[in-house]
Amino acid sequence: MIEGSFIEVKSLRKKYGGILAVNNLDFTVFKGDIFGFLGPNGAGKSTTIRMILSLVKPDHGQINIFGLALSRNRNRILSGIGAMVEEPRFYEYLSAYKNLEILSRLSGKQTNRKQIMDALALTGIEERWNSKVKTFSHGMKQRLGIAQAIVHDPELLILDEPANGLDPRGMKDMREIILRLNHEFGKTILISSHILKEVEQMANRMIIINKGEKVVEGNVQELLDAAVLDLRIEVSEPLRAFELLKKNFSAIVTRLESDDMLIMKVSKPEIPIINKTLVDQGFKVYAINPVNSLEQYFLEKT
Protein backbone atom coordinates (compact mmCIF):
# COMPACT_ATOMS: atom_id res chain seq x y z
CA MET A 1 0.00 0.00 0.00
CA ILE A 2 1.26 3.50 -0.81
CA GLU A 3 1.80 5.62 2.31
CA GLY A 4 -0.99 8.17 2.87
CA SER A 5 -3.13 6.87 0.04
CA PHE A 6 -6.94 6.96 0.32
CA ILE A 7 -7.70 5.32 -3.00
CA GLU A 8 -5.28 3.00 -4.69
CA VAL A 9 -6.31 1.57 -8.05
CA LYS A 10 -4.14 -1.17 -9.54
CA SER A 11 -4.35 -2.79 -12.98
CA LEU A 12 -8.09 -2.18 -13.22
CA ARG A 13 -9.88 -3.61 -16.24
CA LYS A 14 -13.51 -3.77 -17.31
CA LYS A 15 -15.02 -5.01 -20.54
CA TYR A 16 -18.66 -4.61 -21.60
CA GLY A 17 -19.27 -7.26 -24.21
CA GLY A 18 -16.52 -6.67 -26.74
CA ILE A 19 -15.81 -3.11 -25.66
CA LEU A 20 -12.88 -2.47 -23.36
CA ALA A 21 -14.10 0.36 -21.11
CA VAL A 22 -11.14 0.45 -18.71
CA ASN A 23 -7.76 -1.13 -19.35
CA ASN A 24 -4.91 -1.64 -16.94
CA LEU A 25 -5.65 1.56 -15.02
CA ASP A 26 -3.52 2.61 -12.05
CA PHE A 27 -3.76 5.73 -9.95
CA THR A 28 -3.57 6.91 -6.37
CA VAL A 29 -5.56 9.50 -4.47
CA PHE A 30 -3.90 10.74 -1.29
CA LYS A 31 -5.50 11.97 1.90
CA GLY A 32 -6.42 15.66 1.58
CA ASP A 33 -6.32 15.66 -2.22
CA ILE A 34 -8.78 17.24 -4.56
CA PHE A 35 -8.09 14.77 -7.30
CA GLY A 36 -9.25 15.70 -10.79
CA PHE A 37 -10.37 12.78 -12.93
CA LEU A 38 -10.32 13.91 -16.53
CA GLY A 39 -11.03 12.32 -19.85
CA PRO A 40 -13.16 12.79 -22.93
CA ASN A 41 -16.63 11.26 -23.17
CA GLY A 42 -16.42 7.48 -23.20
CA ALA A 43 -12.92 7.48 -21.73
CA GLY A 44 -14.00 5.20 -18.88
CA LYS A 45 -14.34 7.77 -16.06
CA SER A 46 -17.83 6.77 -14.95
CA THR A 47 -17.05 3.06 -15.23
CA THR A 48 -13.99 3.56 -13.01
CA ILE A 49 -16.00 5.56 -10.48
CA ARG A 50 -18.71 2.88 -10.48
CA MET A 51 -16.06 0.23 -9.84
CA ILE A 52 -14.65 2.28 -6.94
CA LEU A 53 -18.18 2.46 -5.50
CA SER A 54 -18.73 -1.23 -6.15
CA LEU A 55 -21.66 -0.58 -8.47
CA VAL A 56 -19.80 -2.36 -11.26
CA LYS A 57 -17.58 -5.39 -10.79
CA PRO A 58 -14.08 -5.17 -12.30
CA ASP A 59 -12.94 -8.01 -14.55
CA HIS A 60 -9.42 -7.65 -13.22
CA GLY A 61 -7.39 -5.51 -10.86
CA GLN A 62 -7.56 -4.27 -7.33
CA ILE A 63 -9.06 -1.30 -5.56
CA ASN A 64 -7.87 -0.41 -2.06
CA ILE A 65 -9.63 2.36 -0.16
CA PHE A 66 -8.55 3.54 3.31
CA GLY A 67 -5.92 0.79 3.07
CA LEU A 68 -8.56 -1.95 2.76
CA ALA A 69 -9.35 -4.14 -0.22
CA LEU A 70 -12.76 -3.13 -1.61
CA SER A 71 -13.57 -6.68 -2.66
CA ARG A 72 -13.49 -7.88 0.96
CA ASN A 73 -14.49 -4.74 2.91
CA ARG A 74 -17.24 -3.19 0.78
CA ASN A 75 -19.57 -2.06 3.57
CA ARG A 76 -16.79 -0.83 5.86
CA ILE A 77 -15.31 1.22 3.04
CA LEU A 78 -18.61 2.62 1.76
CA SER A 79 -19.50 3.89 5.23
CA GLY A 80 -16.60 6.34 4.85
CA ILE A 81 -17.52 7.49 1.35
CA GLY A 82 -20.04 10.01 0.11
CA ALA A 83 -20.77 9.81 -3.58
CA MET A 84 -22.63 11.53 -6.33
CA VAL A 85 -22.65 9.48 -9.51
CA GLU A 86 -23.57 11.41 -12.63
CA GLU A 87 -26.90 13.26 -12.40
CA PRO A 88 -28.20 12.77 -8.85
CA ARG A 89 -31.59 11.05 -8.66
CA PHE A 90 -33.96 11.10 -5.74
CA TYR A 91 -37.37 9.94 -4.63
CA GLU A 92 -39.19 12.78 -6.30
CA TYR A 93 -42.39 12.29 -4.31
CA LEU A 94 -40.52 12.83 -1.03
CA SER A 95 -39.14 16.07 0.42
CA ALA A 96 -35.42 16.94 0.36
CA TYR A 97 -35.30 16.29 4.11
CA LYS A 98 -37.00 12.87 3.80
CA ASN A 99 -34.63 11.87 1.03
CA LEU A 100 -31.62 12.76 3.15
CA GLU A 101 -33.16 11.04 6.17
CA ILE A 102 -33.55 7.79 4.21
CA LEU A 103 -30.09 7.94 2.68
CA SER A 104 -28.34 8.87 5.92
CA ARG A 105 -30.11 6.03 7.73
CA LEU A 106 -28.63 3.66 5.16
CA SER A 107 -25.13 4.99 5.79
CA GLY A 108 -24.70 3.03 8.98
CA LYS A 109 -24.12 6.17 11.03
CA GLN A 110 -26.56 7.82 13.41
CA THR A 111 -27.57 11.07 11.76
CA ASN A 112 -29.73 13.59 13.58
CA ARG A 113 -31.93 16.38 12.31
CA LYS A 114 -29.20 18.99 12.85
CA GLN A 115 -26.75 17.10 10.62
CA ILE A 116 -29.34 16.85 7.85
CA MET A 117 -30.16 20.55 8.12
CA ASP A 118 -26.42 21.40 8.22
CA ALA A 119 -25.86 19.47 4.97
CA LEU A 120 -28.76 21.34 3.37
CA ALA A 121 -27.43 24.67 4.69
CA LEU A 122 -23.90 24.03 3.42
CA THR A 123 -25.27 23.43 -0.05
CA GLY A 124 -27.60 26.44 0.19
CA ILE A 125 -30.98 24.72 -0.02
CA GLU A 126 -32.03 24.69 3.63
CA GLU A 127 -35.02 26.91 2.93
CA ARG A 128 -36.49 24.23 0.67
CA TRP A 129 -35.95 21.38 3.15
CA ASN A 130 -39.61 20.45 3.21
CA SER A 131 -40.31 20.81 -0.53
CA LYS A 132 -40.81 17.73 -2.63
CA VAL A 133 -37.82 17.03 -4.86
CA LYS A 134 -40.03 17.03 -7.95
CA THR A 135 -40.35 20.80 -7.51
CA PHE A 136 -36.56 21.29 -7.57
CA SER A 137 -34.63 22.79 -10.47
CA HIS A 138 -31.64 20.95 -11.95
CA GLY A 139 -29.23 23.13 -9.99
CA MET A 140 -31.02 22.44 -6.72
CA LYS A 141 -30.91 18.72 -7.38
CA GLN A 142 -27.15 18.99 -7.96
CA ARG A 143 -26.86 20.75 -4.61
CA LEU A 144 -29.01 18.09 -2.98
CA GLY A 145 -26.70 15.54 -4.59
CA ILE A 146 -23.77 17.06 -2.69
CA ALA A 147 -25.88 17.24 0.48
CA GLN A 148 -26.69 13.52 0.36
CA ALA A 149 -23.01 12.77 -0.20
CA ILE A 150 -21.89 14.68 2.90
CA VAL A 151 -24.80 14.12 5.28
CA HIS A 152 -23.16 11.16 7.03
CA ASP A 153 -19.84 13.03 7.35
CA PRO A 154 -17.67 10.76 5.17
CA GLU A 155 -13.89 11.17 4.90
CA LEU A 156 -13.86 10.69 1.14
CA LEU A 157 -16.12 12.28 -1.47
CA ILE A 158 -16.45 10.93 -4.98
CA LEU A 159 -18.19 13.40 -7.25
CA ASP A 160 -18.92 12.50 -10.83
CA GLU A 161 -19.53 15.62 -12.92
CA PRO A 162 -20.96 17.70 -10.03
CA ALA A 163 -21.21 20.89 -12.07
CA ASN A 164 -22.83 19.22 -15.06
CA GLY A 165 -25.61 21.36 -16.52
CA LEU A 166 -25.15 24.26 -14.11
CA ASP A 167 -25.13 27.90 -15.17
CA PRO A 168 -21.94 29.97 -14.50
CA ARG A 169 -23.29 31.14 -11.13
CA GLY A 170 -24.19 27.58 -10.16
CA MET A 171 -20.76 26.35 -11.24
CA LYS A 172 -19.05 28.99 -9.14
CA ASP A 173 -21.18 28.09 -6.12
CA MET A 174 -20.45 24.40 -6.64
CA ARG A 175 -16.73 25.12 -6.85
CA GLU A 176 -16.87 27.10 -3.62
CA ILE A 177 -18.77 24.30 -1.85
CA ILE A 178 -16.21 21.73 -2.97
CA LEU A 179 -13.25 23.88 -1.98
CA ARG A 180 -14.87 24.54 1.40
CA LEU A 181 -15.42 20.83 1.94
CA ASN A 182 -11.72 20.25 1.28
CA HIS A 183 -10.20 23.22 3.08
CA GLU A 184 -12.59 23.65 6.00
CA PHE A 185 -13.87 20.14 6.59
CA GLY A 186 -10.77 18.22 5.48
CA LYS A 187 -12.55 16.01 2.97
CA THR A 188 -10.53 14.16 0.38
CA ILE A 189 -12.30 14.59 -2.94
CA LEU A 190 -12.15 12.74 -6.22
CA ILE A 191 -13.92 14.82 -8.82
CA SER A 192 -14.52 13.89 -12.42
CA SER A 193 -15.40 16.59 -14.85
CA HIS A 194 -15.29 17.53 -18.47
CA ILE A 195 -15.25 21.20 -17.46
CA LEU A 196 -11.50 21.46 -17.40
CA LYS A 197 -11.31 24.98 -16.07
CA GLU A 198 -13.22 23.82 -12.99
CA VAL A 199 -10.71 21.07 -12.28
CA GLU A 200 -7.80 23.42 -12.88
CA GLN A 201 -9.21 25.82 -10.28
CA MET A 202 -9.87 23.14 -7.67
CA ALA A 203 -7.65 20.09 -8.02
CA ASN A 204 -4.14 19.74 -6.67
CA ARG A 205 -3.60 16.39 -8.39
CA MET A 206 -5.15 14.85 -11.46
CA ILE A 207 -5.26 11.99 -13.89
CA ILE A 208 -6.17 12.10 -17.55
CA ILE A 209 -7.50 8.91 -19.07
CA ASN A 210 -8.37 8.14 -22.66
CA LYS A 211 -9.91 4.98 -24.14
CA GLY A 212 -9.83 3.42 -20.69
CA GLU A 213 -6.11 3.91 -20.20
CA LYS A 214 -4.06 6.35 -18.16
CA VAL A 215 -2.45 9.11 -20.19
CA VAL A 216 -0.88 11.08 -17.38
CA GLU A 217 -1.14 11.44 -13.60
CA GLY A 218 0.41 13.90 -11.21
CA ASN A 219 0.37 17.30 -9.57
CA VAL A 220 -1.77 19.72 -11.59
CA GLN A 221 0.67 22.60 -11.38
CA GLU A 222 3.69 20.47 -12.23
CA LEU A 223 1.92 18.91 -15.19
CA LEU A 224 0.86 22.31 -16.47
CA ASP A 225 4.34 23.72 -15.97
CA ALA A 226 5.79 20.91 -18.04
CA ALA A 227 3.12 21.21 -20.67
CA VAL A 228 3.65 23.09 -23.90
CA LEU A 229 1.18 25.96 -24.04
CA ASP A 230 0.04 28.34 -26.69
CA LEU A 231 1.26 31.73 -25.47
CA ARG A 232 -0.42 34.80 -26.87
CA ILE A 233 1.94 37.84 -26.79
CA GLU A 234 0.70 41.35 -27.44
CA VAL A 235 3.69 43.50 -28.24
CA SER A 236 4.79 46.69 -29.99
CA GLU A 237 6.48 46.18 -33.38
CA PRO A 238 5.34 42.56 -33.64
CA LEU A 239 7.11 41.90 -36.93
CA ARG A 240 10.52 42.84 -35.47
CA ALA A 241 9.70 40.99 -32.26
CA PHE A 242 8.77 37.94 -34.31
CA GLU A 243 12.18 38.00 -36.05
CA LEU A 244 13.98 38.43 -32.72
CA LEU A 245 12.15 35.56 -31.03
CA LYS A 246 12.65 33.28 -34.04
CA LYS A 247 16.39 33.98 -33.89
CA ASN A 248 16.76 33.66 -30.08
CA PHE A 249 14.36 30.76 -29.55
CA SER A 250 14.82 28.76 -32.72
CA ALA A 251 13.53 25.56 -31.10
CA ILE A 252 10.19 27.16 -30.28
CA VAL A 253 7.40 27.36 -32.84
CA THR A 254 6.52 31.01 -33.26
CA ARG A 255 4.01 32.57 -35.59
CA LEU A 256 2.56 35.99 -36.22
CA GLU A 257 -1.17 35.85 -35.63
CA SER A 258 -2.17 39.43 -36.41
CA ASP A 259 -0.73 42.92 -36.63
CA ASP A 260 0.00 43.10 -32.91
CA MET A 261 -0.18 39.48 -31.76
CA LEU A 262 2.37 36.65 -31.64
CA ILE A 263 1.69 33.05 -30.77
CA MET A 264 4.44 30.85 -29.31
CA LYS A 265 4.37 27.23 -28.19
CA VAL A 266 6.24 27.24 -24.89
CA SER A 267 6.37 25.60 -21.50
CA LYS A 268 5.50 27.67 -18.44
CA PRO A 269 9.08 28.23 -17.13
CA GLU A 270 10.04 29.79 -20.49
CA ILE A 271 7.50 32.61 -20.22
CA PRO A 272 9.58 35.00 -18.00
CA ILE A 273 12.67 34.41 -20.16
CA ILE A 274 10.77 35.42 -23.31
CA ASN A 275 9.34 38.43 -21.53
CA LYS A 276 12.81 39.54 -20.34
CA THR A 277 14.26 39.16 -23.84
CA LEU A 278 11.56 41.36 -25.34
CA VAL A 279 11.84 44.03 -22.62
CA ASP A 280 15.65 44.06 -22.79
CA GLN A 281 15.43 44.71 -26.53
CA GLY A 282 13.15 47.72 -25.93
CA PHE A 283 9.80 46.16 -26.93
CA LYS A 284 6.67 47.19 -25.10
CA VAL A 285 4.99 44.00 -23.86
CA TYR A 286 1.29 44.74 -23.36
CA ALA A 287 0.12 41.24 -22.47
CA ILE A 288 1.27 37.62 -22.25
CA ASN A 289 -1.56 35.10 -21.87
CA PRO A 290 -1.48 31.35 -21.95
CA VAL A 291 -4.41 30.10 -24.05
CA ASN A 292 -6.74 27.56 -22.35
CA SER A 293 -4.00 26.04 -20.29
CA LEU A 294 -5.55 22.81 -19.02
CA GLU A 295 -7.91 22.47 -21.92
CA GLN A 296 -5.05 22.62 -24.39
CA TYR A 297 -3.07 20.19 -22.29
CA PHE A 298 -6.06 17.86 -22.16
CA LEU A 299 -6.56 18.02 -25.91
CA GLU A 300 -2.91 17.36 -26.55
CA LYS A 301 -2.92 14.35 -24.28
CA THR A 302 -6.11 12.77 -25.53
Binding site: S79, A83, R89, Y91, Q148
Partner: peptide, 10 residues
Protein backbone atom coordinates in the same frame (compact mmCIF):
# COMPACT_ATOMS: atom_id res chain seq x y z
CA UNK B 1 -31.44 6.09 -10.99
CA UNK B 2 -32.22 5.85 -7.27
CA UNK B 3 -30.88 2.30 -7.13
CA UNK B 4 -27.32 3.52 -7.66
CA UNK B 5 -27.66 6.10 -4.90
CA UNK B 6 -28.90 3.34 -2.54
CA UNK B 7 -26.05 1.04 -3.49
CA UNK B 8 -23.37 3.63 -2.77
CA UNK B 9 -24.42 3.18 0.86
CA UNK B 10 -22.90 0.48 3.08
Amino acid sequence: GTLRIMLTRP
